Computed example of a mutant assay.
Amino acid sequence: KDKTATSFFWTGVTGSIAMTATGIWFWEPMIATDWLIMGCLCITGVTGHWLLIRCYEVAEASAVQPFAYLQLVFASIIGISVFGEDVRINVAIGAALIVAAGLFTFWRERQKS
């Protein structure tokens, strides 16, 4: 029932406190190019987190969650094409099972309406 800004604020504050308390002991200075990459990471991370919270504010989780399973597909594609990883058969079967369960839930919820 919270607004997007409330959830976004508290997750950000809690995360920054926890990571500062943990990370301060492992801090290393960054070179100039790392600051640019870190800035891009922060902007995309904040935008993605905001949009995810906003999405759950305006839509039912059962309607949105099946699309979140596409992360498995995209992560696999990036892993294979960028990092040259192999997807083992048991991982592919498990991912397909998870995606199928999500799609089944989405279909079942639409049948009830």
Rank of each mutant, 00 (worst) to 15 (best):
I78E: 07
I24A: 05
T33R: 13
T20K: 00
M19F: 05
I77N: 13
R54L: 09
I24T: 05
V13A: 13
G23C: 05
G23R: 03
P66L: 04
V91A: 10
G84C: 01
V46T: 11
L72M: 10
Q71K: 13
I77V: 13
A5V: 07
Q71Y: 12
L36Y: 01
V87T: 05
P29S: 01
T6G: 00
F26V: 03
E60Y: 11
A95Y: 07
A75D: 04
G23N: 06
D34R: 10
M30A: 14
R54P: 04
L70S: 09
S76F: 14
T11P: 00
W10A: 14
E60F: 04
L70M: 12
G48D: 04
C40T: 09
I53V: 12
M30D: 05
Q65N: 14
C55W: 08
V13I: 11
V46W: 07
A18S: 13
W10L: 14
V87G: 00
L52S: 07
L41Q: 08
S62G: 00
Y56P: 04
T6K: 06
C40S: 13
F67G: 03
D86L: 12
V13W: 01
P66C: 01
N90R: 13
I43F: 05
W27T: 14
I43P: 08
A32Y: 00
S7Q: 14
G45S: 11
E57S: 11
V46I: 14
I93E: 06
Q65I: 15
S76L: 15
F83A: 03
F9V: 10
